[in-house]
Write a protein that binds this DNA or RNA. Structure first.
Length: 576
RNA sequence: GCACCCGUAGCUCAGCUGGAUAGAGCACCUGACUUCGAAUCAGGGGGUCACAGGUUCGAAUCCUGUCGGGUGUACCA
């Protein structure tokens, strides 16, 4: 139930009536006609731009269209008044009982309030995290993990058929580095003194793996050449690391549907098949790239490589898919991976990258565009840096020394709910400050708390009412009249619309901001009960009025719960 | 050099498909607790939406250019 789309339907059907009456030309496109809450509530309850967007295509004055439209709209039983304002805005005031009809609907829908079918079962693949399997997830991965997971839930709620996917980069040279690092730990377990040089991973999360290897092989690998153990250790270490990463994700309540191994693309003909597809479209050639301008020309050497003509699909330069020695670049298996996604029948692909991978956006989009004949869309969302603080002081981390802040560190300190919500209080492409002290603070300064507190307050008053045997009214809300009460009810009515927009733009942070606003409207109403006792939700001597107000706050509670659930945050009943 | 992201109140940020007088929070000032949970609320001051052009009925939003910040820039993944 979306009151805004209901009224939009009314506007559209009224426009059609004007057409059949000859007051408006036929063949107009109504796609851009919107019905939305006006910025300033003094203008009315809902506002439509119909007259303005149809002015040019119909060749009519916007005010003339608006005037004709008001007559039809004003005759609808839900409408109190329809006025033309400004250049041709049409402002509607709607009856109180139309707004309050949302309340029983919310109560019936529960945490499914706002669930829609606009996704229409479209198959969407959301790929996120996809961290190298060389260590535990750190705080930067956490943001991508939370964002991707919330986005996946949001799309699911909006009626898409969602697959959550993780691409394991287990095919490249960083896995050799991992294997060598584990080998060093193995030597250490055998009593040798070792040094972690040039690019090996010094983190102590590999100590246990060294011990495991010692238990398995004794000292039989000590002093053996790399060729004897590297393949075995690669496999062993990546499996262990993926176990670790799966555990880390589970701490945040994240469960992937698919873990896709890069390695599985090698030696199976899949890379060759993807590149053959591009070749068949005339997009692969042998060539030499221009040197990049403004950067270390002294290192530059002209090399002939296999290139993908990504410029044909919007990229700035063509991209190498094979090195000069003939082996694949990183891009080649990535092309094959996205080819596989296309072949699995997804209608839309979404990749979540860290902002430091922004340079790959155009080439990946070019690849998907080429591979799918422009039929599958790829949206790439970049998540910006997370800056850590503790009481306002920056929190240093150094990957070189192996002392980075892990996902586990964060979740164990502040809990999964706080971690998730805070990560969503910024738009994905804006940097985020994460202060360990602040996010645990129980004050208005902390949006997680503020929203949870509203939910808990409602639970508290509902349980009081229950003890007094006062129920929740199911229809006919006649006493909800105060502007602050109506503000809350109207806010509730906005939820389905907001959800659709958030899903359409792939922006789950909008839910977090909405919940903060809804909680604010609720807290304001609550406090009003001090000065105006007749607005209190629970009034023992007036069960009828109470049951209406309690129904309203129940609806607020359920909407908060619905929103938090999509974001992966548990609503809390009590905070004492 | 080029590409992408960003520039909105003193600070941190929202701002919907281009829509009306640009909004929150923090901080600052003033007020509200014998309370349906004051961990909250009400009110106040605070803006050249980086700058300059353009598109149009209308621009923080779209286009071009300039300035400033971040990220990335051919045989790493």
């Amino acid at each position: 139930m979306n009151l805004f789309s209901d009224i939009r339907s009314l506007v559209i059907s009224s426009l059609e009536k004007l057409q059949s009456d000859g007051a408006l030309p036929k063949g107009l496109n109504f796609e851009n006609v919107t019905v939305e809450p006006p910025r300033d509530s003094s203008h009315g309850d809902m506002s439509t731009n119909a007259a303005m967007v149809l002015s040019k295509p119909s060749g009519m004055n916007p005010r003339d269209i608006a005037e004709a439209l008001t007559v039809l709209l004003a005759s609808d039983e839900r409408v109190i008044s329809a006025d033309v304002a400004g250049p041709g805005f049409l402002n509607l005031r709607l009856k109180q009982d139309y707004w309050t009809s949302i309340i029983p609907f919310v109560i019936k829908a529960g945490v499914n309030f706002g669930r829609t079918t606009i996704g229409n079962g479209i198959k969407v693949n959301v790929e996120y995290v996809s961290a190298n399997p060389t260590g535990p997830l750190h705080v930067g991965h956490t943001r991508g993990a939370v964002f991707g997971d919330a986005l996946a839930s949001l799309l699911d709620f909006a009626g898409y058929d969602v697959t959550r996917e993780y691409y394991i980069n287990d095919g490249g040279s960083q896995v050799d580095v991992l294997a060598r690092s584990v080998y060093l730990r193995y030597l250490e377990a055998n009593g040798q003194k070792v040094e972690f040089v040039d690019g090996t991973y010094p983190g102590d999360y590999l100590v246990d793996l060294g011990m495991d290897l010692k238990n398995k092989y004794g000292d039989s690998l000590v002093g053996k050449p790399e060729s004897d153990w590297i393949a075995e250790l690669r496999l062993f270490a990546t499996e262990k690391m993926m176990d670790l990463i799966r555990e880390d994700l589970a701490l945040l309540g994240i469960q992937m549907d698919v873990f896709f191994s890069e390695k599985s693309l090698y030696g199976t003909g899949l890379i060759e098949a993807a590149l053959a597809d591009l070749d068949g479209k005339g997009l692969v050639y042998q060539g030499v790239l221009e040197p990049p301008k403004g950067k270390k020309p002294e290192d530059w050497e002209a090399r002939e490589q296999t290139l993908f003509k990504s410029t044909k699909h919007g990229d700035d330069v063509d991209r190498p898919i094979a090195k000069s020695d003939g082996s694949w670049t990183y891009f080649a298996p990535d092309i094959a991976y996205h080819f596989d996604k296309v072949q699995r029948g997804f209608d839309q692909l979404i990749d979540i990258f860290g902002a430091d991978h922004g340079g790959y956006v155009k080439r990946m989009k070019a690849a998907v565009s080429a591979l799918s004949n422009e039929e599958v869309s790829l949206d790439i969302k970049l998540t910006q840096l997370v800056k850590l603080y503790k009481n306002g002081e920056p929190f240093k981390m150094s990957k070189r020394a192996g002392t980075f802040v892990t996902l586990r560190d964060v979740v164990e300190q502040v809990g999964p709910d706080v971690t998730r919500f805070v990560m969503l209080t910024r738009k994905n492409d804006a940097p985020l400050d994460f202060d360990f002290a602040k996010v645990q603070e129980q004050s208005k300064d902390n949006p997680v708390f503020y929203v949870q507190y509203a939910h808990a307050r409602i639970c508290s008053v509902l349980s009081k009412a229950e003890n007094a045997n006062i129920g929740i009214k199911a229809n006919k809300f006649e006493t909800l009249k105060h502007p602050n009460e109506m503000a809350v009810v109207k806010k509730l009515a906005e939820w389905p619309r907001l959800l659709e927009l958030a899903a359409k733009h792939n922006e789950p942070h909008r839910l977090a901001f909405y919940l903060y606003e809804l909680a604010g409207d609720f807290h304001a109403l609550w406090n009003m009960g001090k000065e105006a006792p007749e607005t209190r939700f629970f009034q023992e001597n007036n069960p009828n009025v109470s049951s209406e107000k309690l129904a309203m706050v129940s609806a607020v509670k359920l909407t908060i719960a619905a929103g938090l659930t999509i974001l992966g945050v548990t609503p809390i009943d009590e905070m004492r």
